[in-house]
C-alpha cells in the first residue's frame, strides 16, 4: 500500500506546486506595543425558518453574545433572509474578505470555524507558508564566511604556499600506520 505522506507534505503533492506562497510580513509592528485585532466585521447570513440554517440559529441563540464579548473591536451583523443557505462573511482591516458557506456544519463545527476567522489576520487561505521566521534587522554578529575566526598570520603567507595548500590529515594515513607498526614491532 502506498501512502503519499511525508514530513514535508507540501512537496509531495503536485497540486501544491501551483499554490501561491507567502512570507510572514513585518506589517506595522503589530503586537510590539499592543496588539490590534485584524478582524473588522463578521456577517451571519441565515434563514429564520429553513432547516439548513438550524445550527446557525442555535449558534446565534447561545454563542453570539460570547463572541461579541471576545471580539470587542469587531462589528457583528445578523442578516436573516428567506430560504438561503447559512453563510458567514469575515472582513479584515487589510481589506481581505472571506466567505464561508455553513450548510453542513454542526454547531460545534461552526464554533471552530468562526474561532478561526476571528484569530487569522486576513490572508487568502490557499497560500502556503514558505518560511517560518521573518526579521527586519541585519545580522548582528555579521554573516559567516570561511575566514571567520581563522588565524590572522595566514594573511602574511605568500601564495602559492605549500603549507596552506597541503591536505589536512585528521588521522594518520594507512602508510603512516604501516610504518608505525614496522617501527614498533619487535625485530626477529
Amino acid at each position: 500500500m502506498l501512502w503519499i505522506i511525508s514530513e514535508n507534505r507540501a512537496e509531495c503533492s503536485t497540486m501544491n506546486h501551483y499554490k501561491p506562497g507567502f512570507f510572514l510580513k513585518e506589517g506595522f509592528n503589530n503586537g510590539m506595543l499592543q496588539h490590534v485585532p485584524s478582524l473588522a466585521r463578521l456577517t451571519f447570513k441565515f434563514c429564520k425558518s429553513h432547516g439548513s440554517s438550524r445550527f446557525m440559529r442555535e449558534y446565534i441563540e447561545s454563542e453570539i453574545m460570547d463572541l461579541a464579548r471576545q471580539c470587542p473591536t469587531a462589528v457583528i451583523y445578523l442578516k436573516p433572509r428567506r430560504h438561503r443557505d447559512p453563510v458567514v462573511v469575515a472582513e479584515y482591516i487589510n481589506g481581505h474578505k472571506e466567505e464561508l458557506r455553513c450548510n453542513p456544519f454542526s454547531k460545534q463545527e461552526l464554533i471552530r470555524w468562526i474561532n478561526l476567522m476571528t484569530t487569522t489576520s486576513g490572508r487568502p487561505s490557499n497560500q502556503k507558508l514558505l518560511k517560518y521566521s521573518a526579521t527586519s534587522s541585519i545580522s548582528i554578529q555579521g554573516p559567516w564566511n570561511p575566514w571567520v575566526y581563522k588565524p590572522t598570520e595566514e594573511n602574511l603567507e605568500e601564495l602559492p604556499s605549500e603549507r596552506l595548500s597541503a591536505a589536512k590529515a585528521t588521522y594518520p594515513t594507512a602508510t603512516e600506520r604501516v610504518l608505525d607498526m614496522v617501527k614498533t614491532s619487535q625485530p626477529r
Binding site: W3, M32, L116, T120, N126, Q127
Partner: peptide, 29 residues
C-alpha cells in the same frame, strides 16, 4: 513574545493508494 495570529495553513491532499485494487482515498488536511 506576543501571539499575533492563530491560523491554518494551505489545504493539501493526503492520497492513499493500493496497487492492483481499486483502493484510492483522498484526505484533506
Amino acid at each position: 513574545a506576543t501571539v499575533i495570529e492563530r491560523t491554518l495553513g494551505h489545504e493539501y491532499r493526503i492520497f492513499k493508494f493500493r496497487q492492483r485494487t481499486r483502493y484510492q482515498r483522498s484526505y484533506f488536511y
